[in-house]
Simulated assay, not measured.
Amino acid sequence: MTPEALRELCLSFNAAVEEFPFTPETSVFKVLGKMFALTALDAEPLKVNLKCEPEQAVRLREEHEAVAPGYHMNKRHWNTVTAGGPGGLPDALLRELVEDSYDLVVAGLPRAERLRLDRP
């Protein structure tokens, strides 16, 4: 997956925005003020931190070399995923993990905000 494709994917979700609270090189993708993805889009290889259910996070780390505990994040709830290229995660699985991260964050929002997003 290219950096442009990752940005486009992250911004395709309802109410998703890109912010730069840490450095100009670090993109933080949020939904209603809550982070669901963090990446340096110009990094080689491209890596992204994604929220994950704890049991799934452990399973993914065991199954894929491209998945590691979240760098500078709560390692129970976040994974750092290497995108595409040699040794990277396939694009389809990466898209699924980005969507799962977004859904997990939305699920933690107050009901009124979830309803504004048209999500149960």
Rank of each mutant, 00 (worst) to 15 (best):
Thr2Ser: 15
Pro3Ala: 13
Glu4Met: 04
Glu4Gln: 12
Ala5Trp: 03
Arg7Pro: 10
Cys10Val: 08
Leu11Glu: 12
Leu11Lys: 09
Leu11Trp: 04
Ser12Phe: 07
Ser12Cys: 13
Asn14Arg: 15
Asn14Glu: 15
Ala16Lys: 02
Ala16Gly: 13
Val17Asp: 11
Val17Lys: 14
Glu18Ile: 05
Glu19Met: 12
Glu19Pro: 11
Phe20Val: 06
Pro21Cys: 10
Pro21Ala: 05
Pro21His: 08
Phe22Met: 07
Thr23Asp: 15
Pro24Lys: 03
Pro24Thr: 06
Glu25Gly: 06
Thr26Arg: 15
Val28Cys: 06
Lys30Val: 13
Val31Tyr: 08
Val31Thr: 10
Val31Ala: 07
Leu32Arg: 14
Leu32Tyr: 12
Ala37Lys: 00
Ala37Asn: 07
Leu38Trp: 01
Leu38Val: 12
Thr39Gly: 09
Thr39Arg: 09
Ala40Thr: 06
Leu41His: 09
Leu41Phe: 11
Pro45Asn: 12
Pro45Gly: 03
Lys47Arg: 15
Lys47His: 05
Asn49Lys: 01
Asn49Gln: 03
Asn49Leu: 03
Leu50Pro: 03
Lys51Val: 00
Glu53Ser: 06
Glu55Arg: 11
Gln56Tyr: 13
Ala57Trp: 10
Val58Ile: 14
Arg59Tyr: 02
Leu60His: 07
Arg61His: 05
Arg61Gly: 03
Arg61Val: 01
Arg61Met: 11
Glu62Val: 08
Glu62Ser: 14
Glu63Leu: 14
Glu65Pro: 02
Ala66Ser: 15
Val67Ser: 04
Ala68Asn: 01
Pro69Arg: 10
Gly70Leu: 08
Gly70Val: 03
His72Thr: 05
His72Gly: 06
Met73Ala: 08
Asn74Pro: 00
Lys75Gly: 11
Lys75Phe: 10
Arg76His: 09
Arg76Glu: 10
His77Cys: 02
His77Gly: 03
Trp78Arg: 04
Trp78Pro: 09
Asn79Asp: 12
Asn79Tyr: 04
Asn79Val: 06
Asn79Glu: 08
Val81Tyr: 04
Val81Ala: 06
Val81Cys: 09
Ala83Tyr: 02
Ala83Glu: 02
Gly85Asp: 06
Gly85Leu: 00
Pro86Ser: 09
Gly88Thr: 03
Pro90Ile: 03
Pro90Cys: 05
Pro90Asn: 09
Asp91Phe: 02
Ala92Ser: 07
Ala92Thr: 12
Leu93Phe: 00
Leu93Gly: 00
Glu96Trp: 00
Glu96Asn: 06
Val98Ser: 10
Val98Gln: 07
Glu99Thr: 12
Glu99Leu: 03
Glu99Arg: 14
Glu99Gln: 14
Asp100Val: 04
Asp103Met: 05
Asp103Glu: 08
Leu104Cys: 13
Val105Leu: 06
Val106Phe: 04
Val106Ile: 07
Val106Ser: 02
Ala107Ile: 00
Ala107Asp: 05
Ala107Gln: 07
Ala107Ser: 04
Pro110Val: 01
Pro110Glu: 04
Arg111Val: 12
Ala112Arg: 09
Ala112Ile: 00
Glu113Asp: 14
Arg114Ala: 07
Arg114Thr: 08
Arg114Met: 11
Arg116Leu: 15
Leu117Phe: 14
Leu117Ile: 12
Asp118Tyr: 11
Arg119Thr: 01
Arg119Phe: 07
Arg119Asn: 04
